[in-house]
Every structure is written in C-alpha cells, then in structure tokens.
Amino acid sequence: MMEVSIIIINYNTEDLLRKCIASIISKTENLLYEIIVVDNHSENSPHKMLVENFPDVFFVSSKENLGFGKANNLGASYATGKYLFLLNSDTILINNAIKVLFDYKEKDVKKEIGACGGNLFTEDMKPNFSFSMYYPSLYSIVAYRLHLSFLLNNEIFNSIGIPKEVSIIIGADLFIERELFNNLNGFDPAFFMYVEDGELQLRIKKKGLKMMSVPEAKIIHLQGASSSTFFKMKTEFDSYFYYFKKQFNRKSQSRYKNIELFSNSLKLFYFILTNNKAKKKDYLDILKYIYAKQ
C-alpha cells in the first residue's frame, strides 16, 4: 500500500515546482510515496517539464484555476496513500521531513492527532511562519487590522525542539490521514484562497483531534509569487466573509464587514494624505467592493 500521497498545486511556478520535486526525491528515504501535481490552468503547463524530468509524477491538468482548496481536493481524489501531504510548490525539503511526519503520525495509536506539519524556514534559514496558535476571530481581525497584533499569541515557529499542539498548521506543509480528509469532504470549495486551511483544521478540532507542530521535519518555504494588491484584498475579504457566516452567524459576518470598512477607510485616508495614487485606487476599489457585498 502507498504510504503517502504528496499533492502539489502549481500555478505559473514551473521553476519552483522543479526544485520542490527534486528536493522530495533527494531527501525522502524509506517511504513508499507518490507525487501528484495539479496544474491550476497555468499560462505555460509544466507537463513537458515533468515528463522530461520526473516521469513518475502523476499530472492532473485543470481547465480552470480552481484555487488552493478545490485543487487539493482534486489531487486527493487521485491519491492512493494512507496519508496526504499537501505541499506548496515554493517549498524545498531540508531533511527527510515527510518520513519524519509519517513516523510521528504512525505512532499516534490513540488516533488523537488530526494533522501535523514541520518547521518552515526562509531561504536564508531563518524561522518562517509555520503555524498559528489561534483560529480566526473578530478579535484577531481587529488586532491585525489596527496593528495591535501584540495582543495575540504570535508564536509561529517551534523553537522548543519537541512536538507541540498548535491551532493551525499552515497549508504549505499539511500532513493528514486521507480517510479523515475524505470524511471531512476536504477543503470547503467555497474558499478560493486564504482561510481554507484554518477552516478545515477548525473542523478537525471540533472532532476532538489535535494539530501538532513537529520541529524535526524541516522545510524551506520561499513564499514566492504574489498577486496584485486589490486581488489579494478582495479574495481575502471574500474568504473571511464566508468563514464568519459558516463558523459563527450572520451577525458576526456583518461585524466583520464593518471592521473591514473601518480599517480600510483609515488606510485610504492615509494614502490620500501621502499621495500614493496606486494604493489610493486599490483601497478605494476594495471599499466599494466591501460596501456592496451582501
């Protein structure tokens, strides 16, 4: 039986994808694994590169950009492994990280652990955002939007050297049993990007299971290409707007909308004062978008 199905979503990141897969093959030992690449309708398909360099990789081509969650769901539908390892294309394995996570989960005889992930590093080997100690809430949104994040537990990296319980393993390196993922129906397809990993793990938490940071597994996360400011703001707003309705109620959703209107109005005022025309347009556009959202 295949032990781990590694699922990688690609969207215009062919060079990063090549390095990611090469690191998996180079570092992964004593493990039966398969690699599934889902291409999210990239401008230039990586299929030729994969055939020439990694002929054993299973390639899935989507006819549209499904976003992060739906693309992972698609990849998981082809998986045969006992476990799924959802890995970003902009990652590079430092050590035999997948085997570390596999062994850790295999020792979970009481079935108490829902998901786990390793320590992520920047390219120059500094601690990188690996997990969150809290789930999204109105309180956390207010803290971040008003630059009061010091009021939150902002620990993002496991420095104690032993596994510890966290709230959210970020989606860049999420290790989860395939049966559990399927029982939860995977990621909620209503999320295009942002929040989907936290929402999935909140559902795991509600089943009484734990999310664990396993620092022995070490991975570089490059966090490469970024989208336009307005697209990111719009997509993030849509995700949180849906999240608050789904996990809480319409009152929380309405309060979230008001928080975003207030905080983005402050930012628009700042960029008007500083005569930053590009940012002024982005924030004017997002305010119009948020205001019209029902």
Score class of each variant (00 low, 15 high):
1 M>G: 14
2 M>F: 04
4 V>I: 05
6 I>Q: 10
8 I>S: 04
24 I>F: 05
25 I>E: 00
25 I>R: 15
27 K>P: 00
35 I>Q: 08
37 V>W: 07
40 N>F: 05
50 L>G: 02
50 L>M: 09
57 V>E: 08
65 N>A: 01
66 L>T: 01
66 L>P: 02
67 G>N: 03
69 G>N: 01
71 A>D: 00
71 A>Q: 03
73 N>H: 09
74 L>P: 03
75 G>V: 03
75 G>W: 01
77 S>E: 10
82 K>M: 05
83 Y>M: 03
83 Y>G: 01
83 Y>P: 03
84 L>G: 05
86 L>K: 15
87 L>Q: 13
91 T>D: 04
91 T>I: 10
94 I>H: 06
95 N>D: 04
95 N>Y: 14
97 A>L: 11
97 A>V: 08
100 V>K: 15
100 V>M: 08
100 V>S: 06
101 L>V: 11
103 D>K: 15
104 Y>R: 15
107 K>D: 11
113 I>C: 05
116 C>F: 11
118 G>W: 14
120 L>W: 11
120 L>V: 06
121 F>S: 02
122 T>Y: 14
125 M>N: 12
129 F>G: 00
132 S>R: 15
134 Y>W: 15
134 Y>I: 02
138 L>T: 05
141 I>W: 08
143 A>M: 14
144 Y>H: 13
146 L>S: 10
147 H>F: 13
147 H>S: 11
148 L>P: 00
152 L>F: 13
159 S>E: 11
161 G>V: 09
164 K>F: 01
167 S>R: 05
170 I>L: 12
170 I>G: 01
172 A>M: 11
174 L>H: 04
176 I>F: 04
179 E>F: 03
183 N>L: 10
183 N>Q: 13
188 D>T: 09
188 D>E: 12
188 D>Q: 08
188 D>K: 07
192 F>P: 00
198 G>L: 08
201 Q>R: 09
204 I>C: 03
207 K>A: 01
207 K>S: 06
208 G>H: 01
210 K>Y: 05
210 K>W: 03
210 K>L: 15
213 S>H: 06
216 E>A: 14
217 A>G: 07
222 L>K: 14
225 A>G: 04
225 A>K: 03
226 S>A: 10
231 F>D: 13
233 M>P: 00
235 T>L: 05
235 T>R: 11
237 F>N: 00
238 D>Q: 12
239 S>L: 02
240 Y>Q: 02
242 Y>C: 03
244 F>Q: 09
246 K>H: 13
247 Q>K: 09
252 S>N: 11
256 Y>K: 00
259 I>E: 02
260 E>R: 13
264 N>C: 06
267 K>Y: 10
269 F>D: 11
270 Y>V: 05
271 F>M: 07
272 I>W: 05
273 L>G: 05
275 N>G: 00
276 N>F: 08
277 K>R: 13
282 D>Y: 11
284 L>M: 10
287 L>M: 07
288 K>V: 06
